[in-house]
Design a protein around this nucleic acid. Structure first.
Length: 346
DNA sequence: AACACGGGGGA
DNA sequence: TCCCCAGTGTT
């Protein structure tokens, strides 16, 4: 292939979109996308709200996991108006297990802030809303409203870094490059095609370059693992003590505040062993027994929970109606088993 | 610019 | 088991 003839380039040899027409390299990706795209439900709708829900779910979350939540969420909150009427906790319950719970809280805030108005139809307008950053604003603006603004997500970042052999592309560089490729004829389809390429072909670990429509002019093809360089990550170790206080109806839960799992409910916990006494006092528990350890990993945190079981004169909650994190679900399993065994009843 | 924030899937 | 992935908002 003669690159210059089939693919417009700028002076540095980059592929370059030409306003007013769809270039050969763009057609190659679009053809690949038409043939290989997954039939995802948010690709079957024109409803901006449904697209917004999908894009928020897709923040930091894989497609196959987002699928379940997408259906659950829209069934419970089919429109912006109904979401605006919902309580935060009700929304968190639907979001339970999906992680990054601030997304759900922000989505409620967004609906309430709009107060019955429709979604802004522009990138800039969407960007003003809580929980919507550059990625989501670009995705919704282009897919739902046809605005020619390029998305940059993790997939696009990887594709572009490899295409131009960049080890550490900056956000500004990525924005500029992504925008330079965009097919303004149908920006929404273009953006989805590029992301799908990153999700199915230009994958992190074992890229399938032989199946890539852009392999012919990819500068990083010979050594894709160099591009982009992985970011260093740090894992903190955390040890906490939790009280599973069995009340007359169920276990005692507290609503968590603060950034970590904020808004969800969970077992009361403290950060020092000495603090357990305070928990017993607070819930009228005479005595507690250690029943085991729960380990749970967040991306940047390895948590070990020492779980104590005790009995409280208070009522307690039904864990089925409370939004609980995976961590607290694990503690719940351990605590329920201990109650059934009756081990601590000496 | 650095950091905090869940969870799950693949090697 | 370990390793890796990924937007937004706050500091």
């Amino acid at each position: 292939m003669v690159a210059g003839r089939t693919r417009p380039t700028n002076p540095r040899g980059y592929p370059w979109a030409v306003p007013g027409r769809t270039c050969a390299f763009q057609k190659e990706l679009l053809a690949w996308y038409a043939k290989n795209k997954r039939p995802l439900p948010w690709r079957q709708t024109r409803d901006p709200y449904a697209i917004l829900v999908a894009e928020v779910l897709l923040q930091q979350t894989r497609v196959d996991q987002a699928l379940n939540y997408y259906h659950r969420f829209l069934e419970k909150f089919p429109s912006l108006r109904e979401l605006a009427c919902a309580g935060e906790e009700e929304v968190l319950k639907v979001w339970e297990g999906a992680g990054y719970y601030r997304r759900a809280r922000q989505l409620v805030r967004l609906a309430k802030e709009l107060g019955g108005r429709e979604l802004p139809r522009t990138f800039a307008g969407l960007l003003e809303l809580p929980g919507i950053g550059p990625y989501t604003a670009a995705a919704v603006a282009s897919i739902a409203f046809g605005e020619p603004v390029a998305v940059v997500d993790g997939n696009v970042r990887r594709v572009l870094a490899r295409l131009w052999a960049q080890e550490n592309p900056t956000p500004a560089w990525l924005r500029e490059r992504a925008q330079s490729l965009l097919d303004p004829q149908d920006p929404g389809t273009w953006n989805q095609a590029l992301m799908e390429l990153g999700a199915l072909v230009c994958v992190p670990k074992q890229p399938r370059c032989s199946a890539c429509p852009w392999a012919a002019f990819c500068a990083g093809k010979s050594d894709p693992h160099r591009f982009p360089q992985p970011r260093p990550r740090r894992v903190k170790v955390l040890r906490v003590w939790a009280l599973a206080a069995r009340g007359r109806q169920g276990f005692i839960f507290e609503k968590r505040e603060g950034p970590l799992l904020g808004g969800l409910w969970g077992f009361p916990l403290v950060h020092e062993a000495q603090g357990v006494g305070k928990l017993l006092e607070r819930y009228g528990v005479d005595r507690a027994w250690p029943i085991g350890t729960v380990r749970h990993s967040f991306t940047h945190r390895a948590v070990t929970v020492e779980v104590y079981l005790g009995f409280s004169p208070l009522q307690g909650d039904d864990p089925r109606v409370r939004p609980l994190s995976r961590l607290d679900r694990k503690i719940l399993v351990l605590a329920e088993a201990a109650v059934v065994e009756g081990a601590p009843r000496l």
